[in-house]
Design a protein around this nucleic acid. Structure first.
Length: 370
DNA sequence: TACCCGTGGCA
DNA sequence: TTGCCAAGGGT
């Protein structure tokens, strides 16, 4: 098996086939394409928001977030003027929080450099943070019918099967871009790109593709070879690292809880959390929590009863959070390894954006308070 | 280039 | 329970 495939090695798409593939896909889409909220508008702002939310995220998950977002921040200007904390709160639970931080920054750039109007020039769009080639093509084709190709996960999978690609898609990106561009119907790029993605999402699915319903069945190399369930090829992955974490819900004598805001960049950047850290070899949970709180906040606490245990999986590792009630004893908490610290009442916690694993802690707190 | 960056659904 | 992967981009 070869390791990679360059564009000039890519098998050629015959012109007669391209013409038939375009028309059969567009006919299929006119009948069976999905009715999605962001397809009812040509507003580039709304389409931009949907494209960012849909990065690595399924349509079903995105729909309620999209509807709420458009109510909270209906225009570029509204988003640019909003507080980052409010933006992160609207994104809470969607993951990949850099997407929300980039949306906020990009909105401010559009106000400052483009009079608040979403730019139509490809280079200007690509210059905005959080927008790469696929997202730029998706926005500009959907909003302005510009003849720009896309290469999202759906299109990669469809093309990998159509062309019986014998390497993992990420080893053949230039060939895949070449095919996506060759396939695109330049006069109807808006419909074509949407149809291309719908084909991948509803027919050419990762598991058990519905080949019998596929408008491209006759031309599909994988179908004709019977290898559609083996494609696209996948890359081996390293097993997830597992970290054991001690977490403190620290109470003061005014019935308040201590939370901290993470630094603005990196994992869960800008979100709030309950403080804690990794258990070292041979260390008890209680000792870990006491040590971490001393190191990170410079205060003394007494570690009390266990509140809950939370298992959570991130992209590249897994954590088990061992959460204990704690009592503040002495010292004024300092933001040594975070951006900000606050004492808040339990009922105020829902005003702050928290990562999912911490949402579970808040739910456990609400249960234990009843 | 290879790694970082969340969460949910599903088998 | 575990692994896989979904409308990717930044560095």
């Amino acid at each position: 098996m070869r390791l990679s495939l360059s564009a000039d090695e890519a098998p050629h798409l015959p012109n007669f086939a391209v013409s038939e593939l375009r028309s059969s896909l567009l006919t299929w889409y006119a009948q069976l394409g999905r009715d999605l909220p962001w397809r009812r508008t040509r507003d580039p702002y709304a389409i931009w928001i949907s494209e960012i939310m849909l990065q690595q995220t399924q349509v079903k998950t995105v729909i309620p977030y999209f509807e709420r977002w458009m109510t909270l921040f209906p225009t570029v200007d509204a988003l640019a003027k909003a507080d980052l904390q409010a933006v992160l709160k609207a994104w809470e639970g969607l993951g990949y929080y850099a997407r929300a931080r980039n949306l906020h920054r990009a909105a401010q750039t559009i106000v400052e450099q483009h009079h608040g109007l979403f730019p139509q020039e490809l280079d200007a769009v690509l210059a905005l943070p959080g927008i790469g080639r696929t997202t730029a093509g998706g926005i500009l084709s959907a909003a302005f019918n510009q003849p720009l190709a896309i290469l999202d996960g759906n299109v990669k999978r469809v093309l990998a099967r159509l062309m019986a690609l014998d390497v993992p898609p990420n080893r053949a990106l230039s060939a895949l871009w070449h095919w996506s561009e060759a396939m695109l119907d330049p006069a109807r790029s808006h419909e074509f790109n949407q149809a291309f993605m719908d084909l991948g999402a509803t027919i050419c699915t990762p598991k058990k593709p519905a080949c019998l319903l596929c408008p491209w069945q006759r031309h599909c190399r994988a179908y004709n070879l019977g290898t559609q369930s083996e494609l696209p090829m996948s890359e081996p992955r390293a097993p997830l690292l597992h970290k054991i974490i001690g977490v403190a819900v620290i109470w003061n004598d005014r019935n308040q809880i201590l939370i901290d805001r993470r630094k603005p960049e990196g994992l869960l950047g800008g979100l709030w959390e309950f403080p804690g850290g990794k258990v070292e070899p041979g260390e008890t949970i209680e000792a870990c929590i006491k040590r971490e709180i001393q190191e990170e906040l410079g205060i003394e606490i007494e570690v009390g009863d266990r509140l809950t245990v939370v298992d959570h999986t991130y992209s590249h590792f897994r954590v088990t959070l061992n959460v204990h009630h704690c009592q503040h004893l002495s010292g004024d908490p300092q933001p040594i390894e975070c951006d900000e610290i606050r004492w808040v009442m339990a009922r105020e916690l829902d005003q702050y954006p928290f990562p999912k694993a911490n949402i579970h802690i808040i739910e456990a707190l609400q249960k234990s308070a009843v």
